[in-house]
């Protein structure tokens, strides 16, 4: 089954510490690739760069900022292919960001 790991953590801190923390993240991704489970993933620019679009009553609204204002924001994601939820949870727990924020594990719903 395919799962997306959605990484939520303190966004300002994440952006500020990126260079320092990047090697850990790279090692984590490399390990998943070696395990043959990694499909894709990336980090996101800070939430201050986010723009949200909503169409209401035929009018397009463009709002500066993320979908929801919160200290913890979506900062990146990985998509992995593993046999079951337990395996996905085990990989999520190894994500360095899990120790700082949270990693949400969601099954992919194929189109």
């Amino acid at each position: 089954m395919k799962y997306m790991l959605l990484i939520y953590e303190n966004d300002d801190e994440r952006v500020a510490m990126m260079d320092e923390r990047m090697p850990h993240c790279a090692a984590y991704v490399e390990t998943m690739k070696k395990a043959g489970i990694y499909l894709t993933g990336d980090r996101l620019r800070g939430a201050t760069t986010a723009t949200t679009v909503r169409v209401a009553g035929g009018k397009t609204q463009v709002i500066d900022g993320p979908y929801a204002e919160a200290k913890e924001q979506l900062g990146g994601y990985h998509i992995i292919d593993v046999p079951d939820l337990d395996t996905a949870l085990a990989w999520a727990a190894r994500c360095p960001s899990a120790a700082r924020g949270s990693v949400e594990v969601r099954p992919i719903w194929p189109l």
């Binding site: 089954m1 046999p83 079951d84 939820l85 337990d86 996905a88 594990v105 099954p107």
Partner: peptide
């Protein structure tokens, strides 16, 4: 079913 919770003894 949808989250793929395994039927296994841990």
């Amino acid at each position: 079913r949808e989250a793929g919770i395994p039927f296994d003894v841990p």
